[in-house]
Amino acid sequence: MAEVQANGLRFHVQHLRGGRATTDRPTVVLLHGLVLDNLSSLYYTLAPPIARAGFDVLMYDQRGHGLSDRTPTGYDVDTAVDDLTAVLKACGVTSPVHLLGNSYGGLTALHTAYLHPELVASLILVEGQCLDPEHSGAAPGAGGYAGGWVEDISNTLNLIAIGLECNPLGTDLVSRTARKAARMRATADALLNRTTLIEDVTTVRLLTSEQLAAVPCPVLALFGAGSNLVDSGPLLAEHLPDCTVEVFPDAAHALLRDAPERLLASVLTWLDTRSPASTAFTRRGTDYAARSSGYEAGAAGHDASIAAFDEADDADAVDEGAA
């Protein structure tokens, strides 16, 4: 299933059928981050071992990202939630899912759990940009946030957008790496300068403490100790009814790159304990654990390799745009 039509556009979808032997475990849905990210960052890291543990894994490129359609508008959280529910429906997923969101994908995941609790068995927020630790005393329900990560992201994206517009491509596109960088720049330029993405991110609404208290599903919130978002952990734990926080030392925002082994272990443990499994599944899980070390080594260089794969050469200007 490479493509589905959902919410009025075409989404690139990857559906790994790890649970096809039996169907008693929820599908695990993985949401990637913003701008330069796409489902490949999850496809090469978390998805295979989760599938091997006996889960169906569903990933899709968010609107405007990867191989999905780029629309001029619709980059706000509410539309992202609508996109998710439409993709689930289009893929025939009708039971509650484990929903994992990386970075900005965590915001979509949390809002989905709040707006559509019937769809979500549990949440895993990987450095989720869900609260604003620098403005925890503010009342986000009163309107868009000023300051904190929202402003940081907006500023960063605006700078990149200006840079792309003011520094058009040179004419030396002979080499393949140059053409690849050109494609990346064109994609980022189109997303940042010809859609409402920056505006939509800037006006994001964060859930209030009351809204957080109404999220019924269990939540695993994972942070890097060196991340600006790490102080969100205690706030989430305080307001969410059922929230487990783990902080990884020697890691920052990019947990997929900084702490792939610990991240994977935490995710698999969480999924296993939240998904009643048959004896066969338990055995498969054990088998997986025994052979996982080789894989995890492979995941270690992922983010860096994405950079090498996709952001080679002079694409460093847009490198900071992934959030």
């Binding site: 796409n38 489902l39 390799s305």
Partner: peptide
């Protein structure tokens, strides 16, 4: 795939 063909990671997924 990378150096010679400049295949992007998402293209390799496809």
């Amino acid at each position: 795939f990378n150096a010679d063909l400049a295949i992007e990671s998402i293209e390799f997924v496809a």
